[in-house]
Simulated assay, not measured.
Amino acid sequence: MSLINTEIKPFKAQAFKNGEFKEITEADLKGKWSVFFFYPANFTFVCPTELEDLADKYEEFQKLGVEIYSVSTDTHFSHKAWHDTSESIKKIKYTMIGDPTGTITRNFGVMIEDEGIADRGTFVIDTEGKIQIVEINAGGIGRDASELLRKVKAAQYVAAHPGEVCPAKWKEGEKTLAPSLDLVGKI
């Protein structure tokens, strides 16, 4: 079953952000766009490259009113230790959620049960707490924060402009489409 346009399930978790531990719930997401960025584990290989890429683009996401939440089945203590020891992870200013029980990971359908870790799942959540974008990659395939940023801009555009859609490779400021009978067979 697709998660598109479904509301995120309630959760409560401990997180690490800006040198502090804090509690995060689904209520923290309401009223703003969010990205939940699941990854397999701290202290690994592809994961820090992805999280660093997101850290490098975090300011651009913030300008769009988007909060980033990275999530793994590690604890918030492990997130802090990784942050303190890795040059790549030290760059992170966004929230790193610990999900050692796997509740959030299962809620989003990305738990690899026999390993107790998450798939590489990316979820863009709108201001109403509904999932608008779902992307899941195999473990060895890293994601690109620039492409995610483009998709978030498209999702925000479509949300703000009912009746318009963004075609493939659409970038901010480019022409959109208004689906209608007149366009059928002409694209």
Rank of each mutant, 00 (worst) to 15 (best):
I89D: 09
V165G: 11
D144E: 03
K17E: 15
A168S: 15
L149T: 05
T73P: 00
I104T: 02
K80N: 14
D99G: 02
E60W: 03
S2K: 00
G185T: 10
K22C: 05
D56A: 04
Y94A: 03
K186M: 06
K32R: 10
G98D: 06
P48K: 05
N137Q: 15
F37W: 14
T73H: 01
R150Y: 01
A155T: 13
H79C: 14
I8L: 12
A15W: 01
F16R: 03
A145E: 12
Q132W: 03
I24A: 00
T103H: 12
S34D: 02
E113Y: 03
K186T: 14
Y157C: 00
D74G: 05
G31N: 06
L64I: 05
S70L: 03
I125V: 15
E7V: 07
R120L: 12
Y157A: 01
K32L: 00
K12C: 09
T95A: 02
S2V: 00
I4L: 15
V134H: 08
K32N: 07
P10F: 05
H161T: 12
P100R: 08
V35M: 03
V71Y: 07
P179G: 09
T25N: 09
A154T: 15
D114I: 09
F123M: 04
E172L: 03
P179N: 09
S146F: 00
D99L: 02
E7R: 12
N18Y: 02
M1T: 04
G116Q: 06
V66N: 01
F61H: 03
F43N: 08
K151S: 09
A168E: 15
F45S: 15
F11K: 09
P179M: 08
T122S: 00
P179H: 09
G116W: 08
S34A: 14
E174S: 11
D182K: 13
G98E: 01
G65H: 11
D144S: 10
V184M: 10
T101I: 04
L149P: 04
A154Y: 13
T101R: 05
V184K: 12
K17Q: 15
E52K: 14
D119Q: 14
S70H: 04
G140E: 14
E174V: 03
K175W: 00
I97R: 00
I117A: 12
T6K: 14
E113K: 13
D99A: 02
Y69V: 01
F36K: 10
T6D: 05
F38Y: 08
E113S: 11
M96R: 12
Y39M: 08
K57V: 06
E67Q: 14
A138P: 15
N5W: 04
A27L: 14
I136L: 07
K90E: 13
D126S: 06
V184R: 09
F21Q: 10
E60I: 04
T73K: 01
W82N: 06
D119S: 12
A13V: 14
G173P: 10
S86R: 07
F38W: 06
L54S: 01
F16M: 03
E20Y: 06
Q62D: 06
E172I: 03
F123S: 03
H76L: 05
D84M: 10
Q156V: 06
F36H: 07
P162V: 12
F61D: 02
D53A: 11
P179Q: 10
L149H: 13
N5Q: 10
E115C: 05
D53W: 08
D114N: 15
F108L: 05
H161G: 04
D74N: 14
W33Q: 07
K22D: 00
E59S: 12
V66G: 04
